[in-house]
Amino acid sequence: MSNNFRFDAVFWDMDGTLVDSEPNHLRSFVDAMGALGLTIPDDFHDRTLGMTEKDVHEYLRSDLGLELDLVEWAQARFEAYAAKPEMVKPHEVAFPIWEKLDEMGVQQMVVSNSDRLIVEYNLERVGLLRPQLKTISRNDVIKGKPDAEPYLRAAYLCEVEPSKCAVIEDSATGLAAGFAAGMTVFMMPEFASETPHPYQPIASLLG
Results as ranks from 00 to 15, higher is better:
97 I>K: 03
72 E>G: 09
89 K>M: 13
107 Q>I: 08
63 D>W: 06
64 L>D: 05
120 E>V: 02
77 R>L: 08
60 L>M: 12
14 M>N: 01
151 Y>Q: 08
53 E>W: 10
110 V>H: 08
180 A>T: 06
60 L>K: 03
145 K>R: 13
134 K>R: 12
122 N>A: 10
24 N>F: 02
90 P>G: 04
100 K>V: 10
165 C>M: 09
197 H>D: 07
30 V>M: 15
40 I>F: 00
35 A>Y: 00
154 A>D: 09
171 S>V: 09
115 D>H: 15
71 V>C: 08
6 R>K: 12
75 Q>P: 00
112 S>F: 01
161 E>A: 15
18 L>M: 11
179 F>S: 06
107 Q>M: 09
104 M>G: 02
110 V>A: 07
106 V>A: 04
154 A>S: 08
44 F>L: 11
177 A>G: 00
120 E>D: 15
140 D>L: 02
193 S>M: 13
149 E>M: 03
68 L>V: 09
33 M>D: 12
92 E>M: 10
29 F>T: 09
99 E>C: 10
141 V>L: 07
153 R>A: 10
150 P>G: 03
158 C>F: 07
92 E>K: 12
15 D>H: 08
22 E>F: 02
42 D>T: 12
95 F>K: 08
72 E>H: 11
201 P>T: 06
52 T>Y: 05
59 Y>H: 15
60 L>W: 04
102 D>R: 14
114 S>A: 15
108 Q>A: 03
20 D>W: 12
189 P>D: 07
71 V>N: 11
49 L>F: 15
167 V>M: 03
174 G>A: 08
45 H>S: 12
95 F>Q: 08
151 Y>W: 14
133 L>T: 14
16 G>C: 09
46 D>Q: 13
19 V>I: 14
151 Y>P: 06
47 R>I: 14
97 I>N: 03
157 L>I: 09
131 P>Y: 00
